[in-house]
Design a protein around this nucleic acid. Sequence first.
DNA 1: AGGAAATATCTTTCCAGTTAACTAAATGGG
DNA 2: CCCATTTAGTTAACTGGAAAGATATTTCCT
Lengths: 161, 161
Amino acid sequence: MRAPTDDELITAWGLLHEALRDTEPLLLRGIDPCGKDMSGPWFEVLIRLQRSPEHRLPMSRLAREVSLSSGGFTKLADRLEHRGYLRREHCPEDRRVTYAALTDDGIALAEQARAKHVALLREHVLAPLGDDGLRAFADAARLLRDEARASADAERGAAAR
Amino acid sequence: MRAPTDDELITAWGLLHEALRDTEPLLLRGIDPCGKDMSGPWFEVLIRLQRSPEHRLPMSRLAREVSLSSGGFTKLADRLEHRGYLRREHCPEDRRVTYAALTDDGIALAEQARAKHVALLREHVLAPLGDDGLRAFADAARLLRDEARASADAERGAAAR
DNA sequence: AGGAAATATCTTTCCAGTTAACTAAATGGG
DNA sequence: CCCATTTAGTTAACTGGAAAGATATTTCCT
């Protein structure tokens, strides 16, 4: 198999960008109980809280998992709290940490959003790729992600030294 | 082959997000003649202009291709122009359009940035995926993108009717 | 030709997210 | 035991990009 040319590499990476950029809006259509804003990672936050015991997680961990700075996550939490989907809870064991916890409304919203999102994923991602294609795609994405994390860690280690 | 569960779908999509988000910064390291800012699509713009005859394209077309709003692209063009990498040229045939054209500095920057970017792509994308994996990955991305565009077009058509 | 609709750009306004500075709380080495 | 370091979260200043409106130019229809 011939090795890819420079242009093939650039094109391949561009395709990934375009696929994500064009598909993303389709996957959230009709899921907007928060209003026209709230474009970003609020859905990720809801999903992660929904999967968690007692529907709560430390804010710092959530921020890290959705790749938001601490300051950015504070504002996101403010928005969700203001709309009644989330509340802050103090952790008695470690008084530095604050939990972000779903309210009942937040739980309901998460379930509804998740159901719609999955339906849209089946339509716009699973359908074009097929079962096998989806798995292969996901495996490749995992490889990329792990390589990126390993590289980033290696660089951080080098910087610390 | 068993059909994917809801969770597998959500996870697969999340992996794609993480792969892109974590890999992206690695692919631009050392490519920053513009300063610490200029995070976004300036590289895409340079590449497209580099490939174009006379190193210039209408601003509106560039904006569409890199998925920026007209306002957003105006500001990006301002930044690149201010740094001396780009100039605006009026089109005599259609006086509405303004070309974005690379300066000599811009051409040099594009070549240098492209070379570095390709090297990083080989290291962080081609290496983990392999030749065949990369092509399969790119093909899947193309499928996704085309499906998304077809859906978006269909919806626009329905809205126009 | 004349007017309506479309196109391209710029302007303004708004908002999400980053960085950095700061406080509070926990941890670890001497 | 104490001080230095680290971690959690909030706040403020700034910036990139989106949405909507304004203007100028072209195209299309009659």
